[in-house]
Write a protein that binds this DNA or RNA. Sequence first.
DNA 1: CTTATTTTTGTCGTGCACGATATAAAGATA
DNA 2: TATCTTTATATCGTGCACGACAAAAATAAG
Lengths: 144, 144
Amino acid sequence: MDKSAHLFLENQLCFPIYATSRLITRLYKPYLNEIGLTYPQYLVMMVLWQEDSIKVSAIGDQLLLNTNTITPLLKTMKQKGLLQKIKSTTDERVTVIELTKSGQDLKIKAAEIPQKMQYDSQIPSEELDQLRTGMWKMLKYLQE
Amino acid sequence: MDKSAHLFLENQLCFPIYATSRLITRLYKPYLNEIGLTYPQYLVMMVLWQEDSIKVSAIGDQLLLNTNTITPLLKTMKQKGLLQKIKSTTDERVTVIELTKSGQDLKIKAAEIPQKMQYDSQIPSEELDQLRTGMWKMLKYLQE
DNA sequence: CTTATTTTTGTCGTGCACGATATAAAGATA
DNA sequence: TATCTTTATATCGTGCACGACAAAAATAAG
């Protein structure tokens, strides 16, 4: 068997996942723009809506991100007034993240996004086709 | 039904795909480091190993990337001596990308990576567990 | 008690992604 | 022919990801 056959894009699972991930971010972007969030910021908010007042590292554990990515994210989100950073009194190394009122309220608007997307016909059909193709390739591989 | 139930990470397909994509890039990194490529550069090379002497936009079509991402990628890859950029004579707008000898030769080393990864026990088991979890979540959703 | 190690968070530099925009060539239209 | 539109590529600014490293607090070891 030719080893280099592995090197074609269609023969690998990695590329469809990489491409699909970017396509999903693109689909979310217009809806997240309306509520002033980027996709990674939206993920951080989902963690905080589920469990408020948690350590920086606890956010990273859920999102599989390191502090060198999360710290700058939290910095801009604090500037937007979504959250505040509080030094733990029991352990001075720990920073606890708490949502502000504004951050909590955003959950209501965010909750409408999945429904909006589902029934929104304004999503370019080309993008949806690419997403379907990517999903299909992933499914094909995962089922083998 | 509570609309906000959609906002938990586990209830969405988007997050597992996003996380899995980054995990895969992390798994490839040490092997790609050995041959001096980043993951996006590796994808560009796979396109070129499959079909040499193609337009910049043709690479973008396959990788679902725009020229504002690909152009800088090609610039650094040219500096590494992997490829060269040639202005088309028939259409002066078009830039054709051709692999150098060094770029073609890299295919042999790259072809060993999938096998290496498969039998390499040095991959941290924690990372593999996270990858399995992500894959499993995707599969669960795609099969519904 | 002092020193060494670990834990938690943060900083910095590099390399993508991508929206907005620019530039030049090719083609279309008046 | 002059001008308008389209196409292909490139530039610029912003925001992640992440490796390498740093700093400070907590804990462990001697």
